[in-house]
Nucleic acid binder design. Structure first.
Lengths: 109, 109
DNA sequence: GAGAACAATCGTAATATTGCAATATAAATT
DNA sequence: AATTTATATTGCAATATTACGATTGTTCTC
């Protein structure tokens, strides 16, 4: 099939999965790290720095943008991308709650 | 292609991407949440509760196990799965550092 | 407006993922 | 040993992802 059965899960589960999936690629992690370092936005520098084709980088950027993790504004000839604070905060909250809900107990396998 | 160019990224980036990817599916999030709630491990209850075929659940469990997020021990006829504390701690550290490295500044796009 | 510079989109090939039926394997029970 | 119960594996079809060359849009500069 290759088609996730989203209707069987809660919207929270689907949303978290979607956000995680958007980050679950080394190139997209690298892109986000690059944005995190030079807080002020970037654009086609990524093509040189990551060693992937322009079309590929653009595709990864679109993926991050489509779930709202980053946002882009046209800055003359180039495009400036940066973190979307709202989604980032959501990510921190959701993942934090998820990971934080684990408490180690002795009686486990 | 469909083949990620892992050689272009650091092992940290690849590792984090792999862990995120393992969690980036609503069924696997649901499985983990189920384990987190009933700390003591589970097994084929998931098949009933999630409404997916047994083969599908087993496959998702294997995926989570293969990256070390969960671990399973044979408990008589059934198998008991639970969180692997070491990997979970690693996840918290890595994701925490990643998400936490963002500081909102005014001069952004 | 013509050209340059940058980024987005299209089209395509290779590979991966998702889901399930069917089958196989393993452990407990009779 | 045969049966039952629980899980894993295999094989397959449908769909998704990754990557890139080629092309198309945009915006700036001349």
């Amino acid at each position: 099939m290759g088609l996730t059965k989203t209707e069987m899960f809660t919207s929270e589960q689907n949303q978290l999965a979607q956000l995680l999936k958007a980050m679950a690629h080394p190139a997209r992690i690298a892109i986000l790290q690059r944005i995190l370092v030079s807080n002020t936005c970037i654009c086609g520098d990524l093509v040189e720095e990551l060693g992937l084709a322009q079309a590929t980088i653009s595709q990864h950027l679109r993926e991050l943008k489509s779930v709202g993790i980053i946002q882009g504004t046209i800055e003359g000839v180039s495009v400036c991308y940066c973190i979307n604070p709202v989604t980032w905060k959501l990510l921190e909250t959701q993942i934090g709650a998820f990971l934080g809900s684990y408490k180690l107990k002795a009686d486990c396998c």
